[in-house]
Simulated assay, not measured.
Amino acid sequence: MAVPKKKTSKSRRDMRRAHDALTAPGVSVCPQCDEPKQPHRACPSCGFYKDRNVLDSED
Rank of each mutant, 00 (worst) to 15 (best):
K37D: 00
R12V: 15
D59E: 09
D59L: 10
K37R: 06
T23S: 08
S28F: 10
R52G: 06
L22A: 10
D59M: 08
M1F: 11
C30F: 01
T8M: 12
C43I: 00
R17C: 10
L22Y: 05
S11I: 13
F48D: 07
P36Q: 01
C43P: 00
M1G: 12
D34V: 13
G26L: 08
N53V: 11
M1R: 13
L55A: 05
L55Q: 03
S9D: 05
R16C: 01
P44Y: 09
G47V: 00
L55M: 05
R52I: 06
R12A: 15
R13W: 14
S9H: 04
S57N: 13
P31S: 05
H40Q: 10
G26V: 09
P31M: 03
A42N: 02
P36W: 00
P25A: 05
E58I: 10
H40I: 07
K6L: 14
A18K: 09
C46M: 08
D34R: 15
A2P: 05
K6H: 14
L22V: 12
P44V: 06
D51T: 05
Y49K: 02
N53R: 14
Y49N: 00
P4Y: 04
N53Q: 15
C33V: 01
S28M: 13
D34F: 15
F48P: 03
T8C: 08
A24S: 13
S9I: 02
S9V: 03
D59H: 10
K5L: 06
D20P: 02
S57F: 12
E58M: 10
P44N: 07
A2C: 05
E58N: 13
L55C: 04
A24E: 13
R52D: 04
L22K: 13
E35Y: 12
K7E: 14
D14C: 03
A18M: 08
V54K: 02
A42L: 02
E35Q: 13
N53Y: 04
F48Y: 15
L55D: 01
E35N: 07
A18G: 05
T8W: 04
C43Y: 01
K6S: 13
R12H: 11
T23V: 12
G47I: 02
R16K: 08
A2Y: 06
L22N: 07
V29F: 07
P25W: 04
R13G: 12
T23Q: 07
A21Y: 12
P25Y: 04
P44Q: 10
F48A: 10
D51A: 08
M15Q: 15
V29G: 03
P39M: 02
C30L: 02
